[in-house]
Amino acid sequence: MTSTIARPETSVSELEDLSYELREKLLLLCGEYNGSVHIGGDLSCADVLTLLFHYGMRVDPQDLRNPERDRFVLSKGHAAVCMYITMAIRGFFDYRGIVDTYGQLDSAYGMHPCKVQLPGVEVSTGSLGHGLPLATGMALHARRNGMDHRVFTLMGDGETGEGSVWESALAANSNNLGNLVAFIDRNRQLMTSFAEERVKLEPYPDKWRAFGWNVIEVDGHDMGALVAAFDSLPAPDSDTPTVIICDTVKGKGVDFMEANLAWHAGSLNETDLQRALASLAHGRKAA
């Protein structure tokens, strides 16, 4: 069965431009919204979300429930706004609508995504450690019904402290779900500490290998490497689930936020917004 939904033919440099646009729009929203945004973890996964929505996944903004679409589960639900904007750039939503209503009474765009309030979002998430079990169930459905789409989920590395992640890691491998792909935003920061200080996740790739998963390690901010990693995924009808561990930096792209515990979440006043935008632009020029 060949999918009727085409994957976008986006080049690496176009993807880099889209990532830049995403980060810029994130910062602008942060500047307009009168409240706290999980900006650090948004910026660390911006390149992965761009890869998925603009390159990897077969999705159609005009046909949200097409059964052949690839599924995406945002397990790190606090990066919802980064997903909303990625999807807006892809044509799912109106960016201005997100900025104008984000977090307000009766808005569909809140801190954590809700599928009931926002059609186009596959599942409601927010509480950590829930995405992989949900994605496992969705992959089981596809496998049993002979469908060849993939189910993707994006987790934070801190989130993998939840036992439910490892329960479903067992289940996915036990059920031979090669159509399941988990991206991990390995930014090495929890909310209040650096990962290895409080929680020794290393040897992290080995943990996943020990659970029977196919492990790909990649620089999560190198779009060429992300594309190559995606292209190396085993076929959806294969038997081993894949985890792509993305080496990332929390706050990536804004110098004063990078690897800074103060920027797990925050808001931007006009001065900080201009500093952030300047830093983002400077980084692009340097690259």
Partner: peptide, 20 residues
């Protein structure tokens, strides 16, 4: 689907199936 001793995954997987 028998997930073994994993109640959280069992309910989460069921939700994923219901979602489909």
């Amino acid at each position: 689907v028998d997930v073994g001793l994993s109640e959280q995954a069992c309910v989460g997987i069921a939700a994923g199936l219901a979602n489909e």
